[in-house]
Structure formats: C-alpha cells, structure tokens
Amino acid sequence: MKILVCISSVPDTTSKINFTDNDTKFDTNGVQFVINPHDEYSLTRAMWFKEKQGASLTVVSVGNQSVETTLRKALAIGADDAIRINAEATDGYFVAQQLAAVVKNGNYDLVIAGRESIDYNGGMVPGMLATLLNYNFVNAVTGIEITENKAVVTREIDGGKEVLETELPLVVGSQKGIVREEELRIPNMRGIMMARKKPLNVAEPISAEAATEAQNFEKPAVKSACKMVDNVDELIDLLHNEAKVI
C-alpha cells in the first residue's frame, strides 16, 4: 500500500496572530511553524500502517522553501520520503489541484489529509482533492483500518460517530482521535540524523489558477473588560436581564 500524507505547515498553536503590510500579510516574525496538528495525528496513524502492514509513506506539502523544516520533521518522525511543491499555498482549490497531480503521478492508494488547517481553516483541501481524483472520500475521520483493498473508517458526526466501509483508493480528512495522544511521536536524535539523508524532492507546480484570494486581515475588536460577579444570584440576573441568554 502506498500512503501519501498531506502536510500543512502552520503557526504553532500558541502563536500570537499579527499582520503586516497594511494588514495584507501574516506576520511570520517570531512565529514557529509546525506540522498542522491534524496532520501530525495522520502521520502517526500512517506510521502504524508502515510498521505493521509494510506500507510506504510519503509526505507532501505545497509551499515555499520555508516548509522544508516542517517536512524534515515529518521525515524524522518516520516518513520514507518527502515532496515539496514549490508554490505559495494561497488558495485551497489551487493546493488541491497540485496535490491531485502528485497523487496521480505516484499512484497512491490512501491519501490522508487533515480535517482542516489551523491557520487557514478552510476545511476544503481533502474534499476537493478526492473530487478531482474521483477517489472515495470520508471526512472527520477518527479511526481507520485497512485490509487489502477494504477500508473500515470511523467518522465523527454531530452527537456521535458512525462506522463506514469503503474501498481504496481513498482520501480521508482525519482529525484528533485517529491515534491516542500518547502515541504521538517526538523525533529522536537518530530520527533527525536519518531524516537528513532521506529524499526531499522539490517539484514545480502544475499550471492552475487560484479561485480565491485573501485581500486583507482584521483582528477582532478588543473586547470590553469582564464583569466580575460575587454570587450566583447576581450572575443569573445579569444573564437574564442584561445578556438575555437565559
């Protein structure tokens, strides 16, 4: 089985978000970039398929040179090789088209992307990718087992979960829960050394148009101070008469 894990390189979850150039660009100053959390869970699950079922494991990211640090981390965790598509990832449709070309080229059986990236929060790449490839697609995946050509997938739904059966080739949008927290791997020294020797191939993008473009950004209005309350009677009164939410 050939697995491709799509990796989005995002600001560390604790990052303060600021903008420059008249609020048209994200300010990367002092920001550390990491593997998108949902992608890190995906990668960990993919490692299981590699170790237990002999799958091959490639990671891919669409981005400029700065995403190579993130890809090296994925290699240090255990991916066999990495691909970087040399283009700015400004629009989900554009990214999905680039990834579709990679999947077609490499004939991957299972593509794991994250339910959403924590910076753009588009939640659009996995579904678009599956559609462009005409692969089966399951989103919000919290569990996956593969036997030969058959996939049993657990998916979160509003208020619970469902179990689905389908066949490879398959794209899944995975999320936290697909592996347990304690299974996440921190790259060790040996992994980091080995990652330096693993192939990180850079490919030029195929020609595709972006369908959307972020023009500028805005931070939410500074909110007024919290009203401190002494007792529950006062709280109930405020929630009822002032906030009108109960």
Partner: peptide, 23 residues
C-alpha cells in the same frame, strides 16, 4: 457548517469549479 455541510461543500465547489470560502 454542520458536520454534513462542511463535508459536502468542498466537493460541490470542486465539481462546479467554483471558488469556495468556508467560515
């Protein structure tokens, strides 16, 4: 943006070759 809405929207966009913005 319910779990079904967020699930189906990107597929609709890709099939229509339409630009999509969520949220």
């Amino acid at each position: 943006s319910s779990s079904n809405g967020a699930y189906v929207a990107p597929l609709v966009a890709a099939k229509l070759q339409a630009g999509f913005t969520s949220n």
